[in-house]
Amino acid sequence: RLYEREDHKGLMMELSEDCPSIQDRFHLSEIRSLHVLEGCWVLYELPNYRGRQYLLRPQEYRRCQDWGAMDAKAGSLRRV
C-alpha cells in the first residue's frame, strides 16, 4: 500500500504487480509512507526502474526516511 502522506495518511493506493511509472498509474511523483504486506519490493526513484533503489521488506514504513530515502521521490516499483 502506498500513501501520499506520512504515517499512512491521505490517499492510499494498493499495488500487487510491477509498476513502471507511479506517476502514470496514480498521478503521484512522491510517496510519503508505505505498508508492504507480503514479499520484497524495490522502489526506484525514477520511472522505468531507474535511479536510486530501496529494498522494501514486509513492514510498515511511516515516512520515506524509514526506507533510507532523503526525500519522497518515487518513480517505479518492482517485486523481487
Rank of each mutant, 00 (worst) to 15 (best):
L2F: 04
Q59F: 07
Q53K: 10
R25V: 14
S33V: 00
R1K: 13
K9S: 09
L28H: 07
L77D: 01
S16P: 02
A69P: 00
R32L: 07
R52E: 08
L34H: 02
L43W: 02
Q59P: 00
Q65I: 08
L28F: 08
R63W: 03
C64R: 04
G39F: 03
R63A: 13
I31K: 00
L15F: 11
L43Y: 09
L34Q: 03
Y3G: 00
Y3N: 04
G39A: 05
H35I: 14
E45C: 03
I22N: 05
C19E: 07
F26L: 08
I22Y: 05
P20D: 09
A74E: 05
Q65W: 08
C40W: 12
R57L: 09
R63L: 04
D7V: 01
Y44W: 05
A72W: 07
P47L: 05
P20Y: 00
R1L: 13
I22V: 11
G39M: 01
P20V: 08
Q59R: 13
S21W: 01
P20M: 04
E60P: 11
L37N: 07
I22D: 01
W67K: 02
R52I: 08
E38A: 13
K73Q: 09
Q59N: 07
Y44K: 07
G68Q: 03
R50D: 05
K73G: 08
K73M: 09
L55Q: 13
N48K: 10
P20W: 06
D66L: 06
L15E: 01
S76Q: 03
E45P: 02
S76V: 03
S16L: 08
Y3S: 04
G10T: 00
W41C: 09
K9E: 15
D24Y: 08
V80L: 13
L2C: 03
P47S: 10
D66C: 06
G68A: 04
Q65Y: 11
Q59V: 09
R32S: 06
G75N: 03
G51S: 00
Y49Q: 02
Y3M: 03
C19A: 02
M13R: 09
F26W: 14
L11Q: 12
L55Y: 15
L11R: 14
M12S: 10
R63G: 07
E17V: 09
V36C: 02
L43A: 01
C19Y: 04
I31Y: 02
L15D: 03
A74I: 15
G10A: 00
L77M: 14
E4N: 09
Y44G: 05
D7I: 02
Y3H: 05
C40V: 14
C40H: 12
A74Y: 03
R50E: 13
M12D: 02
L55N: 09
D24C: 08
R57Q: 13
Y49E: 03
Y3A: 03
Y49K: 01
L56P: 01
M70K: 13
D66Q: 06
L28R: 13
D24H: 12
E6D: 06
H27R: 14
P20F: 03
E30R: 10
I31W: 02
C64H: 15
C64Y: 12
Q53L: 03
R57H: 14
A72H: 07
R63E: 09
L37A: 05
D71S: 14
K9Q: 15
N48E: 08
G10S: 01
N48H: 14
E60A: 15
L77S: 03
S29E: 12
W67S: 03
Q59I: 11
L28S: 09
E45D: 09
P47T: 07
E30C: 12
D18V: 00
R62F: 12
L28G: 07
R50I: 10
H27V: 05
